[in-house]
Design a protein around this nucleic acid. Structure first.
Lengths: 234, 234
DNA sequence: ATATTTGTTAACGTTAGGTTAAACTACACA
DNA sequence: TGTGTAGTTTAACCTAACGTTAACAAATAT
């Protein structure tokens, strides 16, 4: 197995700093894609599978948080590191809410960044079981394309799923016939585990059940106090 | 389901700061053990299962890094957060080398600490989903799946078990044909051994007997004053 | 004989989950 | 500057699931 370079999406509007940082990371064996603003960042994100995103917070058009949220809608797992000029408490908290993996204040030491990147990528590698790149699922007579967020039933017009519907169904599908712990969905999709996110999840379960009613071999069962189970009866 | 408080080991030599931080964390629903130096910290670490360690870097006797290394030797997984007076680059790198999960410079904002703690503990929780295979039991003609809380008999529709039923049957199964002491079940499942929990357990034994009636090779016997015995007659 | 332990059923209070609808939120368009 | 629209959260109401306790019967020990 040959060593695969890790792919980094770097979104940084300051051209000088961006280029310097890109070169530095490239020298250190990362494959860097550089975007100059949030818009461009999102376009490039959609076209590629990245192992890590480094986002500047302060950017014209689309700031780092907004971009992060969009990225999260497409991919709940990819690690994100924020770069920010000064550490404002609100910023830090906001960052963690959208699922930041780390936070660096400019100016920062480049070696520290490298170290953090390494730690985070490794962490994700052990965490990610089979899930990351899989996006086609067969669920009874349904087909889920979680990249396009389509749920299609036999010949019928595919149902368009919202980001949350899609992520939840995908997570259930990854655990077919097995328990999908409530806590797992809440931490992976909602990034917070409290009464309200939990109720929100229940609402989405109801929505998914409605979609899946078409095929009565397929059902989502609850295991009281534990989580849900997507079962396919043969 | 009862809420289990997360256990924190806080090692901080400054008595004032240590107590303030301990109180703050306690108020926020953590169970905090406070050690005043590295030595004491390691002793306490060995005696308990902690969900997270917060270590001051600068301490007499044994600094935070040395302590972290010792902790890592015993437990490669427990998350560690370092507290340090000023961000010296070498320190940060050293911290990441011993496997720090995060780093905070004093003075830091307490809300940020809380947020980081939450994020880190959740992260670890999802990592540890890869459970052991110790949840399938054969009991006569029954099959107990204690992960999905199913008790199935031959071709029949599986019986759904409540959490307590499941835990109790599992514990009995772990001691098949042998005594399962009353006290063991009470401390392991009910976490308290008194008249009422004991009566509650009797109620559950009755419920289990009802389920197990289907197979008359299987029975739960009482050993007066001692406990119960799940026997399988061949 | 009588005190203690266990068997069993039913009632009760609490919490988790199912479902629908209303209220936000962020953006898109005009 | 509103007006719509999709996505999501929050509220509300209801049912189901769970665990504890009480009450009484039966078994067992001393």
């Amino acid at each position: 197995m040959e060593e695969q370079l890790k792919k980094i999406l770097l979104v940084e509007d300051d051209p000088n700093f961006g280029i310097v940082l890109k070169d530095y990371l490239t020298m250190n064996d990362y494959e860097v894609t550089h975007a100059k603003n949030g818009m461009e960042g999102f376009e490039k994100f959609k076209k590629n599978d990245f192992d890590l995103c480094i986002l500047d917070v302060m950017m014209p058009y689309k700031d780092g948080f907004t971009l992060a949220k969009e990225i999260r809608e497409k991919n709940a797992d990819v690690p994100i590191i924020f770069l920010t000029a000064k550490a404002m408490k609100e910023d830090v908290l906001k960052g963690y809410k959208v699922g930041a993996d780390d936070y660096l204040n400019k100016p920062f030491d480049s070696e520290v960044l490298l170290m953090k990147m390494k730690a985070i990528i490794q962490r994700k590698a052990t965490e990610t079981v089979a899930d990351s790149n899989e996006f086609m699922f067969t669920i009874g007579d349904f087909e889920l394309n979680s990249k396009l967020r389509f749920l299609s039933y036999k010949g019928q017009e595919p149902e368009k799923l919202s980001p949350k519907e899609n992520q939840l169904l995908r997570l259930l599908a990854l655990h077919v016939n097995d328990l999908m712990p409530r806590e797992l969905a809440l931490t992976k999709i909602w990034r917070d585990d409290n009464y309200f996110t939990s109720r929100s999840m229940d609402v989405y379960i109801a929505k998914l059940r409605k979609y899946l009613k078409l095929d009565d071999k397929v059902e989502i069962l609850n295991i009281h106090g534990e989580g849900f189970r997507l079962v396919i009866n043969e």
